[in-house]
Design a protein around this nucleic acid. Structure first.
Length: 507
DNA sequence: TTCCGACAGTGGGGTCGCAAT
DNA sequence: ATTGCGACCCCACTATCGGAA
């Protein structure tokens, strides 16, 4: 029953201890039937079996009154969501709206709340994949490492969890790397410098350029090639250059990990926006590949010539990559234990317009899904002193605090301020409390339930990765990945960085 | 007892495709 | 033709729990 999940979710949210959350989830998984295990695991880890159904926050306003008695089963709800998905792209938002209303009108208030959070992607129960993995392990009596391994290979936890509950370790061992089905990609931690990254790795490491493009996983069997993104979406049709490059290789049985990026004729990278737009375009690929051609650079091999390499150390996988792929399709890489040498490699990569480097421990296997210490990214950091123009009320655990800052640079010509973006990152609870008090004192001008406009007086030091073109803000530019470092009470608003100095960073 | 790895949460800007206006 | 929405691309950072040291 849906109500069982709604109650379990509430219990999970109510307990802050992770072990207690795991107990609640495992207890439910122990009760759910085999047919509905997949649905239960999906919902309770914040996913839908349909992945996406074309319903977001806006479609979920104005919901009907709830029922008093809970009768909905998981299978019914799942089938209903499937019907809603079938309407997406079929030209009828009205039909979807009607179906949504019928679903929400058939469940209780607690079920409505659960479905609402599920469909908006804000489950807010303190448990997603990571906790669910432990719960599946507990409920099925399987070591969590086995669940993780299967998840890496299958990329979809509900399927893995259902198999574990049905057949235990034996069923999980049935999952193998399958050419044509994407694997969860390995992710990286970050460090402030190459030296710090090398220290984390604890010895010599491979250092590779970090290209500012789109992560891709390329599969080939025979002449068949497919390409997947970081979230395992199939983008084969959008990247014909990559398909052709892989098909041209002598080896016919491959799974490769890399990055696609649009390069200018001189070889320097286009801004991320250009690569992003090109890869996202589906309708005009044939002409776009003339004007915005894509290049691909591989940095890892998960399978070569029928051999699965996931469990091999990085250096062995890279050797296999070098054997199967020509050097011009491989991300530039330097193996060193020397911090000085590493920093020079990093500086050179950045000078050539790239995002930074990734430092890789030579002995780590391809640990997908988990953000292990095997890969560590290093990027340069810019800072600016900007003025807080307004602030937005926070949500969830930031409810009651002014959280999201509107940032502006000083314009000496007008003695005014030009907004460059927002940030909510880098704030401690203490800082949130402090700034809320300050902001309410500075409140001045239009204020609604979301935004409080301020007298532009407070200066804050902001770190960011770069300046990009923007149609959203009046200055025509916006900061990328802005975050708060500290407030600058020693500075007046007129001492803040100027629009001109920010524009100088825009290429 | 302290340290630290892993996780969840809180949102940022940009782009595309599609349906409604 | 324009606008709003959903989905997805890139992502940084803090708080917390609980196992490791």
């Amino acid at each position: 029953m849906l109500i069982d999940l709604a109650r379990t979710s509430a219990a999970v949210a109510a307990d802050s201890a992770r072990l207690a959350k795991i107990r609640h989830l495992a207890e439910l998984l122990g009760r759910v039937g085999p047919d509905e295990a997949e649905i239960a695991i999906a919902y309770l880890s914040g996913e839908l079996p349909q992945r996406q159904i074309g319903v977001g926050w806006r479609s979920l306003r104005d919901l009907p009154e709830p029922r008093q008695v809970a009768t909905a089963t998981l299978t019914e709800v799942d089938e209903h969501l499937g019907r809603i998905k079938a309407q997406a792209g079929a030209g009828s938002q009205a039909a979807r709206k009607e179906l949504l209303a019928r679903l929400f009108g058939a469940v209780t208030r607690q079920e409505q709340s659960f479905l609402l959070r599920l469909l908006t992607g804000e489950l807010r129960q303190g448990a997603l994949d990571g906790v669910m993995i432990e719960a599946i392990a507990k409920a099925s009596g399987v070591p969590s490492a086995e669940v993780r391994r299967a998840l890496t290979l299958r990329g979809w936890l509900p399927a893995v969890g259902a198999a574990a509950l049905r057949g235990g370790v034996d069923a999980l061992r049935e999952f193998h790397l399958e050419v044509g089905r994407p694997v969860a990609p390995m992710l990286a931690q970050s460090a402030p410098s190459v030296a710090a990254a090398l220290e984390k790795v604890g010895g010599p490491a491979a250092i590779e350029w970090k290209l500012d493009g789109i992560r891709v996983q390329a599969h080939r069997t025979g002449d068949e090639v497919s390409v997947f993104t970081r979230t395992l979406d199939d983008i084969t049709a959008q990247v014909p250059e990559l398909v052709e490059a892989v098909r041209a290789l002598p080896e016919t049985d491959l799974v490769l990990d890399g990055e696609v990026i649009a390069l200018r004729p001189d070889g320097r990278p286009e801004p991320f926006q250009v690569t992003s737009g090109r890869v996202a375009s589906k309708l005009d690929v044939a002409s776009l590949r003339e004007t915005v051609p894509l290049s691909v650079f591989f940095f890892d091999a998960l399978r070569v010539a029928g051999a699965d390499l996931l469990d091999l150390p990085d250096e062995k996988r890279h050797a296999a990559l070098e054997a199967a792929v020509p050097a011009e399709l491989i991300t530039p890489r330097l193996v060193t234990g020397d911090a000085q040498e590493g920093e020079e490699f990093f500086t050179d990569a950045v000078r050539r317009g790239h995002e930074g480097v990734v430092v890789k421990a030579p002995l780590t296997p391809y640990a997908a899904g988990r953000r292990g210490a095997g890969w560590i990214k290093v990027k340069p950091r810019h800072t600016l002193d900007l003025v807080v123009l307004a602030a937005e009320w926070g949500n969830g655990r930031r409810q009651g605090w002014l959280s999201n800052l509107h940032l502006g640079a000083y314009d000496p010509e007008t003695a005014g301020f030009v907004m460059l973006g927002k940030t909510f990152k880098g704030l401690t609870d203490e800082l949130l409390a402090w700034q809320t008090e300050q902001f309410l004192r500075l409140a001045d001008g239009p204020t609604d339930e979301y935004v409080v406009t301020l007298r532009p007086e407070l200066v804050v030091e902001i770190a960011f990765d770069g300046v990009q073109r923007s149609s959203r803000y009046p200055g025509g530019m916006a900061l990328r990945f802005a975050r708060v470092l500290r407030y600058r009470p020693d500075k007046r608003a007129e001492d803040a960085d100027t629009v001109a100095s920010v524009r100088a960073l825009l290429f």
